[in-house]
Amino acid sequence: MKTFYLPLEEWTNSFVNDWLLPTVGGFFNSLSDGIESVVDGITDFLIFLPPLLITIVLIGLALWLAGKGIALFTLVGCLYLGAVELWPEAMMTVAIVIVATFLSVFFGVPLGILAAKSDMVNRFIRPVLDFMQTLPSFVYLIPAILLFGLGGVPAVIATFIFATPPAVRMTNLGIRQVPEDIAEASKAFGSTSWQMLLKVELPMSLQTIMAGVNQTIMLALSMAVIASMIGAPGLGSTVLSGISNVNVGLGLTGGLGIVVLAIIIDRITQGIGDKL
């Protein structure tokens, strides 16, 4: 049913090309440089560390936080990543996940607190989160390339957009779920809003928030393949070249690598939540 024509395409393009890029391009360039140096630094560091050391640390964490089974799985998983010669790629993926998760938590948790404290913020933020989670990621990959160029940085940004919602939602949920009498007790004894937040509400909702962080990490990992389409290095690009060369074997080895990383990281971060 065409009653009128909506020139959304033209508007968006002229907005991006005529205003956004000339006006804030410089800012995004320096932001891009900043993120890039962090991602590169972490990647270099992870690759610089002997795989054996990382393996031992991961097994130790798994033993402490997730039990023997997961520790054994971690050993097998790390052996697998070495055996298929994908260790450096795995570390590149981990570096992007680390930076994106950090950004997601850094912005997501405070937003979640705001949403929990104010119904108005909550009403405003919910459709935005829905938007971020359901909008096909390619749609914001394009402007991300325009603003940040190709490589790890737009991958981080795209991953950040995709992976932040659970951090916001779960923080919001966790704080809203603090039992009424406990919040009242804190208030009745004369807590300021900050004291109530820091001494009661955040500790009470830490487990829920950690569940959100865990989801954030999982979503970040699941973005690895898509992000590789805009030049992000790592396991995703292995899978991508498997796809483009119709190399089933290569696709499988890379894909399995992502699964291995996901399971190890998921169980360990879940363990942190349960320990709290």
Partner: peptide
């Protein structure tokens, strides 16, 4: 806040312990 701190203690039905 000051009045609550200095003058009003409260005990809750469901205890309200942290």
């Amino acid at each position: 806040i000051e009045t609550r701190r200095q003058k009003l203690g409260m005990v809750f039905q469901r205890f309200g312990l942290f």
